[in-house]
């Protein structure tokens, strides 16, 4: 019988920019959930999701804090969607020195979205829960986990030889002995 392939859950928040009303309830709820104790203070500046708004150009784009980066991009794309030009930054979640999003206002430390992971787990992250316009939707996808390749005989021998040379046969045997008894 073939062993069941290992899988992992990918959590995604899908954004429909045409549905965003710019109300920023997502920012409010995120900051409340991540305050300590929970919900004790409100501050969109601490939110890990921000709605980038440009009313004059009708741009409303919620973005989520991703990884911290020390440097700005060297060059950027401009995307034309439905006749409107969006800078690459409009969609980028990197916590980057080019803008003051996603930094703790007091300490300046970077923030990162954690999908509201908590015990017991929420059914959805808070930003999605409060987005009644359905601009944000939560999707969980199960994808196969990449199997680690088994080491070949050659690799095993080379490795063992290295360890014997490094630590001596006696130490290796003693260690193996102990491990095999466990």
């Amino acid at each position: 019988m073939k062993a069941r392939q290992a899988t992992k859950i990918i959590k995604e928040i899908k954004v429909d920019i045409n549905k965003c009303t710019g109300c920023r309830a997502c920012e409010m709820a995120c900051s409340a959930f991540h305050s300590k104790p929970k919900y004790s203070s409100i501050n969109p500046a601490r939110s890990r999701i921000r709605v980038v708004v440009d009313e004059l150009n009708d741009e409303y784009v919620p973005i989520r804090a991703g990884d911290y980066t020390v440097a700005e991009c060297t060059g950027r794309h401009t995307y034309a969607i439905d006749g409107k030009d969006y800078s690459e930054c409009s969609f980028c979640g990197a916590v980057c020195p080019s803008r003051d999003f996603f930094f703790e206002p007091d300490s300046g430390l970077p923030l990162k979205c954690d999908m509201c992971e908590t015990v017991p787990a929420l059914d959805q992250p808070w930003c999605v829960k409060v987005c009644t316009a359905d601009s944000l939707t939560y999707v969980e996808r199960e994808v196969p986990r990449d199997e680690k390749p088994q080491p070949t005989r050659d690799q095993l021998e080379i490795g063992l030889e290295f360890l014997i040379n490094e630590y001596g046969m006696e130490a290796i045997l003693e260690n193996l002995n102990r491990k095999s008894k466990r």
């Binding site: 045409n18 965003c20 009303t21 710019g22 109300c23 920023r24 409010m28 009708d58 409303y60 316009a133």
Partner: peptide, 8 residues
């Protein structure tokens, strides 16, 4: 589009 005010 239709837009909303803060947290509404």
């Amino acid at each position: 589009r239709q837009t909303g005010c803060y947290n509404c």
